[in-house]
Simulated scan of single mutants.
Amino acid sequence: MKLFSGLSHQALAEEVAALIRVPLGNVRLGRFRSGEIYVNFEESVRGKDVYILQSFSPPINEHFMELLVMVDALKRSSVGTINAIIPYYGYARQEKQDKPREPITAKMIADMLTTIGVQRVITFDLHAPAIQGFFNIPVEHLTALDVLAEAVRTLRLENAVVVSPDAGRVKTAEKFANLLDLPFAIVHKRRPGHHEAAVTHIIGDVKGKTPIIIEDMIDTGGTILKVVERLMENGAKPAIVCATHAVFSPPAQEKLNHPGIEKMIVTNTLPIEERSFERLQIVSVAPLLAEAISRIHEHRSISIIWQESDSVKE
């Protein structure tokens, strides 16, 4: 087994390598003056099970192309298997056509990865779980709900409620509420545009309670801010916001430093140290990735790390 990292999130790759006790592989990544990507694996990969960790962090197009070039280099080097670890799977917000003549980019990315030679994908909390079906190769769809729930438990909150920020997150919120043994509420909203949201009403009792908002990703923070403000209008206390993927596109930091947000808990599926702020707590998914890699390599079941509250997938 060999583990390599692209340039998107080397800190996470190093953490995973230390946990599985495999040295991070040597790969030379460079750019020609024209901007084209150059890759050279500086050690033999013949017959090896290779794992490449590359999250789709900004600049997403650059890092995606880098992953494709790395996979092509491996495929031409008589590698055993090629496993792409993509903690944050970008382009997942376009998984269906909401309007005529729109792309389905989540399927496009899946097709490109499969065509270039990826034989397995390991990822976290897809924006739409049905994206797994876009692949004709194994997809290990892990969840960070357990590590986020553990971080919330340490806060020892009293009189709390889990809140789904929209109808699409209801199932996730219900699982999170089951993990924390808490009730849950639903915020109903509509989207006039890609980065716009209008909250219409709240289903459930939030008055006098600490809302725990659970999201798969936070981009600009505009939607979360509107949800928090509406919850406070309905008598809720400052919120705890949890999310797997901290995209944090500007001006997310300014928006999320809001008095209505007591704490924000996110994972490190994306590198966010440079975009950190006072109320932010980062929990690591490296132990989950390390366990998944070890079990896959040893042909053992990974059902123990799925930890879904209502079912276990073998």
Rank of each mutant, 00 (worst) to 15 (best):
F4K: 02
S5A: 13
H9T: 07
H9D: 09
A11C: 12
V16R: 13
V16H: 12
A17Y: 07
P23V: 14
L24N: 02
G25L: 00
N26Y: 08
L29M: 13
F32R: 06
F32C: 02
R33T: 05
I37Y: 04
N40T: 08
E42T: 09
G47K: 11
D49L: 06
V50A: 00
Y51C: 02
S55W: 04
F56D: 06
N61Y: 08
E62V: 14
M65V: 12
E66Y: 05
D72C: 03
D72V: 01
D72Y: 14
A73Y: 11
L74P: 00
T81D: 05
T81W: 10
A84N: 02
I85E: 01
I85R: 00
G90Q: 10
Y91H: 13
Y91E: 01
E102A: 05
I104F: 02
A106Q: 05
M108L: 15
M112G: 03
T114A: 12
T115L: 15
Q119K: 13
V121Y: 02
T123A: 04
D125F: 03
H127T: 00
A128M: 10
P129N: 09
Q132M: 15
G133Q: 12
I137E: 00
I137Q: 04
P138G: 04
E140V: 08
A151K: 07
A151Y: 04
V152R: 03
R153E: 12
L155E: 12
R156P: 00
N159L: 06
S164L: 02
P165L: 01
D166I: 07
A167Q: 11
R169Q: 15
K171Y: 14
K171C: 11
E174P: 01
K175F: 09
F176S: 06
A177S: 15
L182T: 10
F184A: 12
A185Y: 01
K189D: 05
R191F: 03
E196K: 12
E196T: 12
E196S: 15
A198H: 14
V199F: 13
G204D: 06
G204C: 10
V206R: 14
V206Y: 00
G208N: 11
I212A: 03
I214R: 03
I214L: 10
E215M: 11
M217V: 15
D219V: 06
T220R: 11
T220W: 10
G222C: 00
T223P: 04
L225M: 08
K226H: 08
V228M: 02
V228S: 00
E229A: 11
E229P: 13
M232C: 11
N234T: 01
K237C: 14
P238R: 07
P238Q: 04
I240N: 07
V241M: 09
T244W: 03
H245E: 06
V247F: 00
Q253K: 10
Q253A: 08
E254R: 14
E254W: 08
K255F: 08
K255S: 05
G260W: 09
G260V: 00
I265Y: 00
V266H: 06
T267M: 02
T267I: 00
N268G: 03
P271I: 11
P271R: 10
E273A: 08
Q281I: 10
L289R: 11
A290G: 06
A292N: 09
E298D: 15
E298Q: 11
R300T: 04
S301Q: 05
D310W: 09
S311V: 14
K313D: 05
